[in-house]
Nucleic acid binder design. Sequence first.
DNA 1: TTTTATTGATTGAACGTTCAATATAAAAAA
DNA 2: TTTTTTATATTGAACGTTCAATCAATAAAA
Lengths: 186, 186
Amino acid sequence: MRRQQLIDATLSSVAELGLKATTINSISKRANLSSGIISHYFGCKNGLIEASVRYLLSSLKTELLSSVEDSASSQQRLMLIVEANFSVVQKNAHVTKTWLSFWAESMHDEQLHRLQSVNAKRLYTNLLYSFKALMPKQKAIQAANYSAAMIDGLWLRAVLSKADEFEFSKAEELAKQYVNSLLPSH
Amino acid sequence: MRRQQLIDATLSSVAELGLKATTINSISKRANLSSGIISHYFGCKNGLIEASVRYLLSSLKTELLSSVEDSASSQQRLMLIVEANFSVVQKNAHVTKTWLSFWAESMHDEQLHRLQSVNAKRLYTNLLYSFKALMPKQKAIQAANYSAAMIDGLWLRAVLSKADEFEFSKAEELAKQYVNSLLPSH
DNA sequence: TTTTATTGATTGAACGTTCAATATAAAAAA
DNA sequence: TTTTTTATATTGAACGTTCAATCAATAAAA
C-alpha cells in the first residue's frame, strides 16, 4: 500500500518536474510521507525509480493481456496492440512525459535499459505473431519492424509536440490505418 | 574557439554520462579548462546546454542544406532528407544518446522545447515540400506525416537498442524504402 | 596602461542516505 | 480482558557529499 503510494508520487513528480529534478523530497511531499520511508521500502532512490518503471511496464502488459485474450481474428489483435500502446497514456496524460524520461535515462542505466529492451521486443514480438498468421514469414518480419517503428514514431512525435488528447487519438488512428494498410487484403 | 571547445565537451559529457550526471566539472575537465570559464562564456550551465542543442540543430540544418541544394529531382531530395537525419549521428555515434537526453528534457524546459519544436516541424516541412511536387496536396500531407513518424520511429528504436553502425544504416535503408513506397510510381 | 581571459578556492544551497527516536500494531503473558 | 513484550512502521533531524555560482587574483593581450 505504501509502496504503491510512493510509486504514484514518483510518476507524478517525474511527469511534472522531469527525472532530473525529481528528488527524495519532491516524491515524499507528494505522498505526504517522510523522506526516510523511501529507503525503508525501496532501499534507495534508484530502487524506487526502477520499481516505478516496472509498474508502468506491467500496466502496459496487463492492458494488452486483458484485451487481447478473447479476440478472435489476427487483424483485431493487431488493432488492440496499437490501442494498448496508446491507451496507457490516455488514461494518465502526464505519464507520456515519464516514459520519455525513463527512456532517455535507460541509455546510462543498465537496469533501466534491460527493462526498456524487454518492452521494445515485446511490441515487436506481439506484432510479428499476428502478422505471421496473415502473410509469409519474411513479409511478416518486415511488417512487424515497420509497424513497431511507426507506432513508436507517431507516439514520440505526439508526446514531443505536447499533443492534447484529441491529437493523441488522431495519432492512434493513423497508426491503425498504417497497420491495416500492410495487410494482404489491401 | 573556447565556446566551441566547451560545446564539444558538453556533448561528449552528455553522451557518456547523461544529462542528469553532466556537471560543470565533468564538462570543464573534458575541455581542460577551469569551471569558472563556463559562466564567463555562457552565463550559467543552462546557457551552455542550450547553446549545445542549438549547435546540434544547426549541424543538422547545414547537413541538409549543403546536400540538397544541387539535387534535381524531388525523389532524390527525399532520400537526402532521410540521409541527413541519420548521418549527423553516424559521424559521431555517441551524439544519438545526446539527442534523446535533450528531447526528454525539452518536456520540462521551455527553451529546449521551442528548439525541439522547430526541428520537428522542419523535418515535416521539408518532406511535405518534396512530396507536394509528386502528388496531390492531401496525399502529400499524409505522406509527410507518415514519413516523419517512420524516420523518427526507426531512429528511436535504433538508438534505444544501442544499435551499432551497421544496424543504424539498416534502419536508414528501411526509412528510404518506406519513403519510396509512398511515391506514385509504386 | 587598460581590457579581456582564465583560474580555482570558496560559498551556500540542495542532495541522498543514515539513524536514533517515536508511534503503531501484533503477539504473548498475566 | 488487561498488561507486557516484541516487532514493525514512520518520522525528521543530522551528516557528508556534490553541485552551480561567485569572485578576488593572476595571466595574457591590446
